[in-house]
C-alpha cells in the first residue's frame, strides 16, 4: 500500500507539473507550484517509511512544509506588487482595521 501511495503521489505531481506548464495565467502556475510542494512533503514522509529512516525524513518534510508556505507568499507578493519589500498598506482595499 505504501508503494502504491508513492506511485500515486508521483503521478499527482506529474499532473500538477502539467498544470504549471500549461498555465495559462501566473496564478495557475503558483497554484500548481503550491500543490506540487504539498505533494512533495507527503512524498518525502512516505519515502522515509519506505527506506526505514522515517525519523530523519519527517524533519526534512516539516521544514519543507514551512518553507513551501513562505515561497508561495513570496511569489504572490512579487506577482502582486512587483517587489518584495512593500508593506502593502499602499494599495487601497476595503479596509481591515489596521493593527493598532
Amino acid at each position: 500500500m505504501l508503494t502504491l501511495t508513492l506511485l500515486v503521489l508521483l503521478g499527482s505531481m506529474a499532473l500538477a507539473l502539467l498544470r504549471a506548464v500549461k498555465g495559462p495565467t501566473v496564478y495557475d502556475r503558483i497554484l500548481a507550484a503550491n500543490a506540487f510542494s504539498t505533494k512533495t512533503v507527503l512524498l518525502i514522509t512516505a519515502l522515509g517509511f519506505l527506506v526505514g529512516e522515517a525519523e530523519y525524513y519527517v524533519d526534512i518534510a516539516l521544514m519543507y512544509t514551512l518553507v513551501g508556505f513562505i515561497a508561495t507568499v513570496a511569489v504572490l507578493k512579487v506577482s502582486e506588487f512587483g517587489n518584495l519589500g512593500q508593506s502593502g498598506a499602499v494599495r487601497s482595499t476595503p479596509a481591515e482595521r489596521p493593527n493598532k
Binding site: 524533519d59 526534512i60 507568499v73 519589500g85 508593506s87
Partner: peptide, 28 residues
Amino acid sequence: YGPGGGFQAGVIFAAGFILYALVFGVEA
C-alpha cells in the same frame, strides 16, 4: 542526531524573518 546543522538552521531562521518582512514590510 538528525539532518541539520548550522547552515540549514541559519537559512530557516532567516526564512522566518523573510516571511515576517513579506507580510509586514521590509522596514519592519
